[in-house]
Amino acid sequence: MSEYKLELVNVSKRYGKKVVFNNLSVQVKNAEFFVILGPSGTGKSTLLKAITGTIPPDSGRVILDGNDITDIPINKRNIAMMFQNYALYPNMTVYQNISFPLRMHHRDPTDIDRRVRKVARMLKISDIIDSNVTQISGGQKQRVALARAIVRNPAIFLLDEPLSNLDARIRYTAREELKNIQRMLNRTFVQVTHDQSEARVLADRIAVLNEGKFEQVGTFDEIYNYPVNTWVGDFVGTFPMNFIDLPKSKGKQMGFRPEWTAIAKGKGIKATVVSTENIGDTVFLFCSVSGSAKPVVIKGSRFYKNGDRVNFVIKRYNTYDRGKLVRNEKRRV
């Protein structure tokens, strides 16, 4: 038994001259919820399909439970996948959809029936089990797709933006449910998403994918607090991380989150308010500051308006040298 559930070793894929990803390597641990986070169009879905084999990689190996599965036929890999649009077979009922993988694996009919009904109860879709999949709601479709993945008891679950087709209202509860199911099953889930709040709630670890390479792999806290480079700092977070040139050190910058700042009367850094954003309990100020091309976001209060001059202090920051995080930095409080 391998130390890792799933390993990608130097996986590359290109279409003509367009490189989708180049020499990607990553290890996913057993029973963890692993989220691949990245902006749209960075090859996240293609990466999942490289694991299932439906889009075979040009080079590199895919290793599941210590076995190289790169050249195994798609249907012989013990992988379940849930597609963004759920890919339910439209000519089949809910029951037939869920039982399809078991039928394909020639399971015993009574065993199939028992397992389908059990997983339907677990996902609360027993009442629609004989419905046609074209006539059920988006939330129900998502459950049917999940049920179809769970029923076959696969080695690993791959999920391609499984929540993005849901209404915002049910997306939050579906998200919680998905996490609970993963904990209950105690299985390895690999999900791709562009939604960082989804990644934050679901993931044990996150891999940040950008332009075909992993920028950083770690827990949300690690990635949020110590982004390895300015791109990750910029991409992760409700507001991008602020970067200000460090005085007297060429190429070095301070990186800090808005909530690491505080307004200070008469001391600290001078700034001018450009615009404000009220998120309910807190008001953030977009300020122009010397040493930063982009507006710097700081934690303020509702008393400030555009054009006001403010002073603020930075309570903690990371140092970046030519865009890269400098480790073991002594942090000022």
Binding site: T52, I74, N75, K76, A87, F100
Partner: peptide
């Protein structure tokens, strides 16, 4: 792709 992943040849 789904059918192949579900185990159909």
């Amino acid at each position: 792709a789904q059918a192949r992943v579900d185990g159909a040849g």
